[in-house]
Nucleic acid binder design. Structure first.
Length: 423
DNA sequence: TCTGGGGTCCTAGGACCC
DNA sequence: TCTGGGGTCCTAGGACCC
């Protein structure tokens, strides 16, 4: 039996933890460049706002209703998440952290009162981490997700909903629209609705052959999970991530290679630091660049390049020079670039790196020490990297702007909104 | 004027090997 | 003239998730 523990409106709940005066008010949290809404309070949802809304399109609504608008503080949310997950891990119920705001617990099959346990978890997490959560419980993860939606929607569940028998399963699936099923996105739900599959129950009752025709193997897994057959296994909490990505949209189009190179070097430095923090080594590196897809009248270009490194490494200068060569191989002049990024596709664990026959051991040690010192200095000094490669420039090309910004006027909630334009 | 970022998994086509 | 078949790896791209 699985329990899904899902934090309610997570980023907003974090903000309310440090700014209690936001309680009960419509609040939205914005994406990196203050471009889109990425999290909302229930009050903001009730006004018709939703996740993904570009800010400039909903500005008048926000001003009219005095919605509080906040830039995201992801390091703070990360900390809050660690408190939640830390509390959950003490429950000793096979914790699997699924995302920053969700985790699965694996419950004993002889647990007497799963729903009661769920309600206990709701109170316990609120008490320990200050974050409100909802809990969905069922025999498969996909059904637990369905249950959690009900727990979140209807106060009558008091935070926890159990799908514990056939009758409850059928009823819950009937009340769940096909696009609300975990694993069925916009595209698949559209094609399923065209085939007359409108609810989760319709999908569960569709014959297997038909499901295989409409969906791929992951879709078939979803179908089996909805019927009560567990197929999505419980990941080990220690499983390392398989890839890392660092990318940003720029606040203006970049039209020359030199600036793009600075951005790529900055992203690569972020990746290097993440790798070292995770004790991982990059085996492959990818760089991508792309024009603004919303500017349809302008010429479009997006391209990525990929290479296997000679040796798996976490050494920023080596990663950076490789990333720059990749960038030069795909860069075309005459385009306005809006977004770029660097990714690592294969991460080798520490100890899994095969030293080359001719490696200079002393050099390897020096590099390691250099990176340790750099990371320690940058961790100690606030703001952007104080110690960095010259290739990163001053980094001021519309990147990571959230770092410079004060959060717009939180303490005063009587200002009729506190909306602050990002310009 | 202004449209996020970081992940996973799957598939298809081509290159290459025996 | 006629030109195998199966496996693996690489790469790009698409779908999904939060």
């Amino acid at each position: 039996m699985y329990a899904l523990v899902d934090c309610n409106n997570f980023f907003v709940s974090c903000e309310r933890l440090r700014y209690p005066q936001l309680e009960g008010r419509p609040v939205v949290v914005l994406s990196n460049n203050d471009g889109c809404i990425v999290a909302l309070s229930n009050e903001a949802k009730a006004l018709g706002l939703s996740r993904g809304n570009p800010l400039f399109k909903v500005r008048s609504l926000i001003e009219r209703y005095g919605v509080k608008v906040l830039s995201g503080s992801h390091s703070f949310y990360r900390e809050c998440s660690e408190h939640v997950m830390g509390a959950l891990s003490e429950l000793d119920s096979g914790l699997e952290v699924y995302s920053i705001d969700e985790a699965f617990l694996l419950l004993d099959s002889d647990l007497g009162d799963p729903e009661g346990f769920g309600r206990y978890v709701v109170e316990y997490v609120k008490e320990r981490a200050g974050i409100p959560v909802s809990v969905g419980i069922a025999v498969t993860k996909t059904l637990a997700k369905v249950a959690a939606r009900f727990a979140k929607r209807y106060a009558g569940y008091r935070g926890a909903c159990l799908i514990g028998n056939e009758e409850q399963r059928l009823k819950a699936l009937k009340l769940t629209a096909i696009e609300d099923v975990w694993g069925i996105g916009r595209r698949l739900s559209r094609s399923m609705r065209l085939s007359g599959i409108n609810t989760a129950l319709d999908l569960a009752l569709t014959p297997r052959e038909e499901v295989c025709r409409l969906l791929n193997v992951t879709g078939e897994r979803t179908w089996r999970e909805l019927r009560g057959e567990p197929c999505i296994s419980h990941a080990n909490a220690a499983d390392a991530s398989k890839s890392l990505l660092s990318s940003r949209s720029f606040d203006h189009d970049i039209r020359n290679l030199a600036q793009l190179r600075q951005a790529i070097c900055t992203f690569t430095a972020i990746l290097g630091r993440k790798l070292r923090a995770d004790h991982g080594y990059a085996a492959d590196l990818e760089v991508f660049i792309s024009t603004n897809r919303f500017h349809t009248s302008e010429p479009q270009y997006h391209k990525s390049a990929y290479t296997r490194l000679h040796e798996a490494t976490d050494y920023t200068p080596l990663l950076t020079s490789t990333a720059c060569s990749l960038l030069e191989s795909i860069y075309r002049s005459g385009y306005g670039y809006k977004r770029a990024g660097v990714a690592v596709r294969h991460i080798v664990p520490e100890g899994g790196v095969q030293p080359g026959l001719f490696d200079d051991v002393r050099l390897t040690g020096k590099r390691k020490r250099l990176m340790e010192v750099t990371d320690a200095l940058n961790a100690r000094m606030p703001g952007r990297d104080k110690v960095r490669l010259a290739a990163m420039g001053d980094g001021d090309i519309g990147l990571i702007r959230a770092d410079f910004k004060a959060n717009p006027g939180i303490p005063d909630c009587s200002d009729g909104g506190g909306f602050r334009a990002p310009h």
